[in-house]
Amino acid sequence: MRILVTGGAGFIGGHLAEKFSRDGHDVVAFDNFEPFYDVGIKEHNVETAQRAAAEGDGSYELIEGDLRDEEVISQYVAEADVIFHQAAQAGVRASVKEPQKVNDINVSGTLNVLEAARDSETERVVVASSSSVYGKPEYLPYDENHSTTPVSPYGASKLAQEQYARVYNEVYGLPTVSLRYFTVYGPRMRPNMAISNFVSRCLNGEPPVIYGDGTQTRDFTYIDDVVEANRTLLTTDTADGEVLNIGSTDNIEIRTLAKEIRDQLSPDLELEYDERNDADAEHTHADISKANDLLGYEPTMTIRKGVEEFADWYRENRDWYEPLVRSS
């Protein structure tokens, strides 16, 4: 199968490209190498996917380009059987500073992908959305019928992506699925995330820093579970036109997460607290029953086991990864 992964050098996109290449598919990874964080980590994502293709029966091609370039994105969309649209201007806090840029990339760029797919033989477009679309919870866990009142430009852009995907399915018959990810983590994750920072500080004998009082809760989802949900959509149309939560097996307070990492890596450290950013969501917790019903989605990684897996990977890759975390 010919697969286009936009944002294919990023965290989730890189893992998808790696898995699909290893599985024997022909993968094109499309990425603009936006320096939201050090591009060195994207280079590692590319190298990992290239090795996977060499070890398996698939192929891998990297294209450096921008979603906002209609002509370029149309060319690669037209050649793909399935599109995994992961590319976006990431970052809730960054979106508060540059809302127009977020809109241009996330919304206008997505429209370019959908419009190109509408005019092609594309079998399905899978759009990466986010739990940020929910905003302040009216109840937990969030199900897909919960109201969507995002509290950041990033969340608003992700909601717009979903709505355009739904409209292209309903009006033009383009098979689309939107996946609302809940705080994805794992090897080669963005270096400015809470888990990577907690692990780095503990391994260096420094106390984890918690922003706010730490009672914020998150549904942390391991990257392998996210990849499996996407992989299922290569061969099933049961979720076409739908929006699905992709979360984990449990929900955890940030301060409890920090304690868990501290206790695993450096039990003698005290926790530190700093001012919370207002753009950060207070709570996220996914009801994944719809994804289970339509895709058979069953996340397998608990937060404790996931932290252990990530910490082991961190130690093995510390030479190149830690400088990125420390500078983020």
Rank of each mutant, 00 (worst) to 15 (best):
I41M: 09
T6G: 12
D224Q: 11
A117V: 14
R124M: 15
E242L: 02
L159S: 00
R180K: 06
I223E: 00
P267F: 00
V227Q: 02
Y76A: 06
I3Y: 02
D104Y: 01
R201N: 12
Y211N: 12
D31L: 13
S200M: 03
G40A: 07
Y142K: 07
A165H: 00
E270I: 08
Y154M: 05
A80G: 06
S59Q: 08
M193D: 13
L295D: 05
Q161R: 04
F220W: 15
K158T: 11
D319Y: 13
L16Y: 03
E316P: 05
L16H: 00
A9G: 04
Q163F: 13
I12G: 00
P137C: 03
C202G: 09
L294D: 01
V133I: 15
Y168N: 08
T215P: 10
S157W: 03
L257N: 05
I195L: 15
K42L: 04
N103C: 07
L16E: 05
N169K: 09
I223L: 05
H15S: 10
G205N: 10
P153N: 06
Y185V: 11
V113A: 04
L67D: 07
P35T: 14
D81W: 03
L294N: 00
Y222C: 03
V113S: 02
I210M: 02
D280L: 08
T217Q: 13
H85L: 15
A54P: 08
A80L: 03
L244N: 00
T183I: 09
H15P: 11
E55F: 05
F11L: 09
A78S: 15
V28A: 03
R2N: 14
E308V: 09
R190C: 12
V5T: 04
A258W: 05
E162F: 01
M301W: 06
D268P: 12
Y181V: 01
G247M: 02
R93D: 10
R190N: 15
N103M: 12
H283G: 08
S129T: 03
T238M: 09
M189L: 11
A116F: 04
T221W: 01
V96L: 12
N251C: 07
A52R: 01
I63S: 06
C202P: 15
Y172I: 14
T256Y: 05
E308Y: 05
S120L: 14
I41D: 06
I83L: 02
V307Y: 01
Y185R: 08
E316W: 03
D143Q: 07
A156M: 10
Y168L: 14
D237Q: 11
D224V: 12
E253T: 04
Q163R: 10
K290M: 09
G155I: 05
D104R: 08
A239R: 03
R218A: 03
N197L: 13
S248W: 02
S157H: 02
S120Q: 11
Q216D: 15
R188E: 06
Y273G: 10
L174K: 04
A54E: 14
V72E: 15
G91Y: 02
F220H: 12
A90Q: 01
A29V: 09
A29Q: 08
D143S: 12
A9D: 04
G247F: 00
E47P: 04
R304T: 11
Y60W: 07
I73P: 03
L174W: 05
A78F: 00
E309Q: 07
G212A: 10
L257K: 03
N317V: 14
V184T: 14
A156W: 13
N169Q: 09
R231Q: 09
R124C: 15
V5Q: 02
D312G: 08
I83T: 00
